[in-house]
């Protein structure tokens, strides 16, 4: 992997970390805080593309795991992965990769609506498809109940999709990073 790509990965992980300073809004009864950080995850895929975006989120989560309080509300350490909502954190990696993959495929047709649809598919549908069964398993509750408990977050997530889509389209015009025609970058183990 080129050094330039390594630097993009490192700096985008830093963006996701910096977005924690937006104060989280925690809904009572559900617990998963609504934060600007998942916006950062959507942007990692939508701005850097699949491999770099996914690796940026992996790097961010590694730094969280080794004890830096980088999640919104100053949370960090291994415990956040073992809590009931740990699946959503791991799902961020897949969400960023999927959003990046779809953005690369649809790069020439990317407009606000397409970008919003991509963010919804990757950052909401796919993310919940990982996070909800995970919390159902660890909390030993039926999947339907876990899904019902997550529903209050969907409006906030849709708003984040709309914001992320706007940013993706503007960054595509002003400082494009994704090169859709280049061959797929080699996977690197991390």
């Amino acid at each position: 992997m080129e050094t330039r790509n390594v630097v993009f990965i490192a700096l985008f992980a830093a963006i996701v970390a910096a977005l924690a300073v937006f104060p989280p809004i925690t809904l009572p009864l559900v617990g998963v805080p609504i934060t600007a950080q998942s916006l950062g995850v959507m942007l990692a895929g939508g701005v850097l593309g699949a491999v770099r975006g996914g690796l940026a989120v992996v790097l961010f989560l590694v730094l969280v795991a080794i004890g830096l309080p980088l999640l919104a509300g100053g949370r960090g350490g291994f415990g956040v992965f073992l809590g009931p909502s740990g699946g959503f954190l791991v799902g961020w990696i897949v969400a960023a990769y999927a959003i990046g993959y779809m953005t690369e495929r649809l790069w020439h047709r990317l407009n606000y609506l397409v970008a919003a649809g991509i963010c919804f598919a990757g950052g909401v549908v796919l993310l919940y498809a990982i996070g909800v069964p995970w919390s159902a398993f660890v909390a030993e509750i039926p999947i339907g109940t876990a899904l019902a408990g997550s529903l209050p977050f969907i409006p906030g997530d849709i708003i984040k999709c709309l914001i992320a889509a706007g940013v993706m389209v503007i960054v595509k015009r002003s400082y494009p990073i994704i090169t859709p025609k280049s061959p797929a970058m080699p996977q690197t183990g991390m």
Binding site: T3, V7, L11, I15, L39, V47, I170, S174
Partner: peptide
């Protein structure tokens, strides 16, 4: 939020290009 995120992302990407030149 858009007005905060666009400059943040673009400035960080520019910094990233400068850092990779330095590297």
């Amino acid at each position: 939020l858009t007005a905060l995120l666009v400059p943040l992302v673009v400035r960080t990407l520019k910094t990233a290009d400068e850092v990779s030149q330095a590297v």
